[in-house]
Design a protein around this nucleic acid. Sequence first.
DNA 1: CTTGTAAGTATTGATATAAGTAATAGACAATAC
DNA 2: TTATTGTCTACCGACAATATCAATACTTACGAC
Lengths: 1289, 341
Amino acid sequence: MLRFSRSCSRMLVSKRLTSQLRCVSQTAFLRKPSGNIDGLSGATGREDIGFLKSSSVSMSPHFGPFDHSHAVVSAAESRDIMNLWSLLEACLHSGYMERAFSILKSLYALKSHQAYFIDDYNKFLMKYAETLHDIKDLDKKLFHDIQETFPACEYNDKTLAILIHHALKLSSSAEAKLEHCKIYFKMAVSGQRSILSNVDVLTVPNYKSLVHDLKLVSLNELPAAVRPLIESGNIVTGEMLSSQQSSEINAKALSHGEVALDRNIEPLDKDAKELLAVDTIGMKVVRHTLLGLSFTEDQKKQITSFNFDTSSNLLNFDQEKESIDFFEMFRNLKSEEERRSFESALDEFNQDRQHQLENRATDAAKERWRHDFEEAKSRGDLSIQKKLNIKLWEWFNLMLPLVKEEVRRCAAVANKTAQDTSLSPQEKKQNKARQEYGPYLTLVDPEKMCVITILELLKLNSTGGIIEGMRTARAVISVGKAIEMEFRAEMLLKNESHVFKDVNKKSHEFKLMVQRARATFRSIKIEESKVLWPQEARAKIGSILISMLIHVAKVKVEGVDPVTNEKIKGEAPAFSHGYQYHNGSKLGVLKIHRSLIHQLNGERLVAAVQPQLLPMLVKPRAWNSWNSGGYYYTQSTLIRSKDSPEQVAYLKAVSDAGAIDNVYRGLNVLGETPWTVNRKMFNVMSQVWNSGKPFLDIPGIQEKLTLTPQPPRDADPSVHREWKLKNKELANEFSGNRSARCDANYKLEIARAFLGEKFYFPHNLDFRGRAYPLSPHFNHLGNDMSRGLMTFWHGKRLGSTGLRWLKVHLSNLFGFDKAPLEDRVRFAEDHIDDIRDSAEHPLDGKCWWKEADKPWQALATCMELNEALKMSNPDDFVSHQPVHQDGTCNGLQHYAALGGDIEGATQVNLVPSDRPQDVYSHVAKLVVARLEKAAANGDETAALLKDKIKRKVVKQTVMTNVYGVTYIGATHQIDKQLSTLFNDHKRSYELSKYLTKHVFASVRELFEGAHLIQDWLGECAKRISKSIRLDVDEKTLKNGNKPDFMSSVIWTTPLGLPIVQPYRENGKKQVATNLQTVFISDPFAINPINARRQKAGFPPNFIHSLDASHMLLSAAKCGEKGLDFAAVHDSYWTHACDVDTMNVVLREQFIKLHEVDLIERLKDEFDERYKNYLQILKIDKKSEVAMKVTDLKKKLSQKLGRPFTLADEIYMEKKRIQLLSSEDASEQAEGANMVTTVSLVAGAGDISNLEKTSDASCLVVLAPLTLPQIPPKGDFDVRELEKSKYFFS
Amino acid sequence: MAIRVQPLRDLAKIQHYYGFRYLLNPGVHEKIFDKLDLPQTYQDTSKLKVLDLYPGPGQHSAIFHNRFKPLQHVLMDARPDFVKHLRGLSSTQNDSFQLYGKDPYEWQSYTDLIDVEKKFVPSKRSLDSIHDEFLVLANLTGMVGEGLFMQWLACVGNRNWLHRFGRVKMLVWVLESTAMKILARPGDQLRSKCSVVADTFTDTKLVATMETKNLHKFGQGVIDSHKPVLFPENDVWMPSGKPISLLEVNPSKHNIDLDNFDYVTKHLLILRSTPLCEAFESLGHGGRDYFTTVIKDKKFLRKCPKELTSSEFLMITEAFVNWPFKPDIYMDFIDVFQDND
DNA sequence: CTTGTAAGTATTGATATAAGTAATAGACAATAC
DNA sequence: TTATTGTCTACCGACAATATCAATACTTACGAC
């Protein structure tokens, strides 16, 4: 990917020509960059679901996260680049051109960055050009920069696009335009098309002008998305339609008119049932966005064409009464055809709403405050909620001028208009600080910043273990992040409107095309923005804003004067910055005044659910690269990287090579499943909620925390201690309840906002490849309540199997899931009356559903079943209820498949059986057997315990065993169970210790093969993480005999996703902000790895990466088969009627996954990836090799005149390897002849027999890294699974 | 009958020292007692009851016992190696020298000894003078010694634990670093809450300290005015570890609410170098406004917390107590993350 | 014009902070010797 | 270089210590040659 640097002669040629033709365009004769070498060629042919291609990319010699051929270089430099980028971006947007240019110079100076420099320059140029009035000035500037300032930089097609754009904009005559553009096109690097593909630079009118007016380009050279916009004069009239697409649309639109409904759909009243004690600022905002969008004329026409009475409820801000239940409408449509056209109309409508949702939320909040304020002024009725809003409005107005002033000062500093001389030292310091954060502060509209700050702080109330406040560190960063997010969205929007500014979108059809073009544009734009603000900058601007808010925000307070005992009224800051201690460490805290807390009604404010991160109204943008997918205006990355540049580097590499398409495919299926809120469930829940009483897992309202009275001062210290503990317990319970209630509140509020809507969950992966919805709070990964609240948007006819599965599902939800399917069906049938009662009288009946393991979902299922059973033929019922199929101890299933344990595989249902096996009970049985044997031998403890062992006692331990729980941890778990049976703490712990030993032994016995694998994985991880790599900076080796271990465990999943365990030492440092210093990690620091966590984490992470692959494969397959599909890691959901199909897919894919010997492949991958890595071994001092090594060391030490250190050894070996891999034959030979300590050890062959542990007679040597032998595999053949119906059930 | 005083080389045979360090030079011990002039407080040492906490090898205890012949001398230690050793020391001797084998860390051990088993019952004395029949000896040079010592100081403030019997003198071996903290004067580098607390509730002196090159790090004039006995590291066993010092703690007469005082000092001393007028804001919502109104002295407001004396802290505490809008000082903790099953 | 020195400034590193340790046991890393 | 002392203890989603001061690194200023 390197660009060859220019040759001297060409330089001369171009200079000569330049002098002749300068009059036209100086830049015309800048050297043309030579072609670039394209990316890595694809992998070999044989069928590959991702692994082969991907692993070959991430292990190719050209790639390495520490390597110079990729953007991520040495830690320091990549940090520099990132900081400079974000600063450049900030300066450009703030118009600080001078500073921006100097940043460019700094970027230019970074060698590793050179190939990418032109992108930065282009950004600069684009902004710079806006200030000019003559295209010639732009020419001149570019010419000068590229010739003089950045000689090693070469322009690209985007540069030309910028020139063209401005040529069209600035030139007065058509001739001038033509002349310039002609030249620019001639300069194309990879052709005219490539220039034209820059849809983020060239506007629609530009294209039009190039095609129609100048006739420089033909229509089919334009990017596909833009083409329809330019065709046949659309721009002018916006009405003529010519393309195939638009006529289709037209037809659809017409068909709308024919849709008739036999039943009137009642418009629903979303606000009719105000949820009690729910603070709705935030969600009102969202609802307004959802409801408050006025329809365009077109949309109005469309919607009315469905015979809905919408003319009266063009919803807007003040008139928030009614909205439409799209789901109800959809459900009542008769024909497939109608439903299709309805959906397409809805989808289009939702495009706009999604846009609004992601972009307008902050404005909406502010408007809400203002509205309440003005209403109060005129009317004076003040609910608590409104009072709060008024307060917020006041703060907003007080804060705004301060922010504006600060922004002004920042601008002054940046533009150097503030004179330094007359300032006090303090002010000078302030200005210095402004220079750092200023560029970031000036990007977002001050009004928005105020709103964001207020909302963020209210949202964070009661987080981080602070009872009436929050952690400062969290607050400043949250505010900073929110500002950044706002900035990104705004920027995208601004750019977009720049490109589309003159487009007339009169007609509906034309608008569709614009929408499509916009989507393309956005994708490009989002992919391009690789910049993130440094954590430090976020913290800094966050702290500035917060301190201003602290300064202005006041609340009325009441207190009692302790002296006079009089009531006193006063005013106090609403927020106060202080500290609290925790275990002797200070913690910065922002406390919220109690009187404000009361106004928040004891609940955490539901204020600012990141409006950008709600469920989506339209299908998420499909994933097609590591950073493009999901929301439309909000960038998210494919994996949630834990501040690990290494992870990102690997991901980028395989993403760019197109090696993880199967991952995208699966993920996109998950995102494309439409959902809606289960209205009946919502109604039941809100009724419960409004009672304020505790119900199931919703705690009741608890007004405030009351502490127990203090013991007398001279009471024994132990009494004081008890008192403190008691208080902590109370506080814990209180805040636990509050956050649980608050969480439920979020869920209900979001659900309410999305009542009747069709929505989607964009998904993301954690670093192991497991998928998570991007939207927090309300998603199908949530608790029982969340899950009970949602249902599939699409309905499918049950059919006979569907009905059966629905019954099974109900039984499962009741925890009756260990029986054969027939029994489970019978379970449901035996409870038909209960089901009906629960469904029809959920709260005033027998409440059978509350006995379920997962009551809410059980209730939902009862309702569904009841409806179905009411029909004359229940098979005809159209069901929306997701039915789950859960793996029985999914981790163990994978382990069993890997280890080939027959017994283990049987126990986790990999082997066909007529009834499902339950591992936990089985283990319990094994334990009891052991105990009985011990008891027979006179072991009293065993005798005492043997009849106390229930499934529940061992369940957690068996489960966590997969995650590598330690003996002590398991003891804790078991003690938790046993301590309910025994009163004596000490005794129960002793028993637990004893029992744990038996449980461990039993599990190990059952899953022998699995455990061998687990141990093997652990051993590999340990060796890798303690190995020494030769390709890192030498300075990490400088400290003599203790090199830092730098290699993390990296592997590639079957789907090709590269996984890098991010566990490194904590690289946090203090950063000064306005309020206090905060302790944050530097995301670019590459710290020594944490070997312990690497080791402990690898086995479970590897297994999770497998189950994630299984899930994504299954998702993709189900998607292909047209199923609606959702998954919670190892629980797979689809429509009742599709369960059988899904089950087949699940088994197929599991077999496909495990047909390859994954462990062997893993070892091969490790061997390849970590070849040339070294490990430290202790071998017998007296062995032949050891003697040789000692000799060599002695010799070298004499030569050096100082001890020969480990670092020296490594350095030497590095040299040798370099020579060996050289292309020069003589160098190769030299390398081959070189004798190093490592080569000696390597030459000695197998030295494992020489290894000594901690004997005094051993010598520490460096040896090539070797991994242990793979343990033998058992006889289980995964293909047996094909017929195992209880595999997932 | 005298208790056998064993020399260092014998005591060094004890296996485990549990991370504690003891001065094991009888001569130095005698010098220390010379300097302490205990008879001035305990006119009649035959009525004296001594509680000896973590006596360890017991050399210090033996010397004390032989010299002052107290009425009762209870050694409290639960560490097996020391218990074994001390048992040999006490059993053959007179019955005023007793071993009590419970852990001095546990509050319960004291209630057992005093209130339940009533094996050691000190008399109650008025607060007008130092208790003249009750003395506490202790060695807190171990890992958690500092923490325990701080808690004991709080007990002095609360007048609970052993201090419910009056102003009980304590002779406590601590790490040098702890001594430095405790003895730091206003303005010192090490001035911190514990030295303020020590100032407020006690009169504490440095009696003896190991000779190190760090002596200058003791607060202003501590060495000069306390004139501690100095002893070399060789006199201390274990041979390696941190230097140790002996403190004499004389509880003072006071009537102060510890909780408010605690809150105020704790919070102010976080911003130890920030002028008061700013630091006050961290005491609660509107703290700056309130305190700058109540406290008029502009010069005082420019001082920073580390420069304040104990009485100045008391003054601020008083103002704090009278603050109508003061925050709830009992909510001043972090709610640890709760894990759910 | 170069370079020396001093002084001043930014950055980094070390240290203290609070103040019950509930309870186990074994591996592994860090530190002291 | 070996003993001892200290730390940590189940994976992921996940969410975080800070003030202060001494010491070092780095820059600037100024003066002299």
